[in-house]
Amino acid sequence: MKKSKLAYKLFTLSAAFLMLSCGGENHDETNEVNVVDTAGTGSDENFEDLFESPEIDYHLPSPLQVASIFKKSGLSYNSDATSKPDLVENYTTELNQMLNFGVYSADMAYCVLNEQSNEGRKYLQVITDLAEKIGMEAVFENKDLMERFDTNIEDKDSIEVLMIDIHERTEMYMDENDMQHQQAVHFAGAWTEGMYLGVYDFENNPEKDGVGTQIAEQMSILGNIIKGLADPKNDGMDIEWLIADMGSIENTFNEFESVNNYYEDPDAEELVLTTVEYNTLSELIKTLRTKITNG
């Protein structure tokens, strides 16, 4: 009984101190905040994580930038190439949902940049649905994004600005909730879809050298996507097959003669693969894309 009374008093006093401290306006910067030695609670570990970035880090381009680069390279719109929105019902595991969140983000960027806003709207809807399933509903919760989309559906620039807002909100949400490790999973889906859309167009229009060059250039990102996927925080997602498949694509690419020649020539501006090399790379990308979108 005595013990419980003491515990109650301690709790009350601690709570009072907490309230006073949180409400105070004066923050004495000289107060030592020992986040290491007060550890033992999860929140302190998170504080420490927040304040110490890794020694080596990277920035991956947004799906909109990738789509924009492909478009500038001559990529055409092919309505049959994108992943069908109704497949969303098949994605029941966390990994499938995250990967296809990325796939649909790339599809939405592709539609919007090609002035297919009505198609783009369908992808915004499935992205919103998937966000709810993967714990990111807060990014879309106000419904203002869909309203803005509908209001500006005829205005390509406004829709592109809206896409940037979605990207920024997603990035901020993941930063604030210590979900950065999952960004690589979303990006793996977006990257695969972007490459697939490039491959699809290039197969039908092999004269488009720019698209072929862009496919080769986007390969440079793959190493960091794999590193991100291999983050131990992603361990519970049965992600090994994805890392192995992407690793296999990277290894195959790095063994191409054109790739070796390109890196040995300091004056080389563009990497152009041979037809055989393109075909090999294309098959690997199509296989991976099928695995991801089939769930």
């Binding site: 110490e52 970035s53 880090d57 381009p61 909109l64 990035e171 930063d175 060059t213 960091n224």
Partner: peptide
């Protein structure tokens, strides 16, 4: 296109933190 916030603690010794950024054609 995105942001990258690099956090660190000043210490008594020099540190280097590196961020890789892609530049496309």
């Amino acid at each position: 296109d995105g942001s990258k916030v690099t956090y660190f603690n000043f210490k008594t010794y020099k540190q280097v933190k590196e961020v890789e950024i892609y530049l496309f054609n």
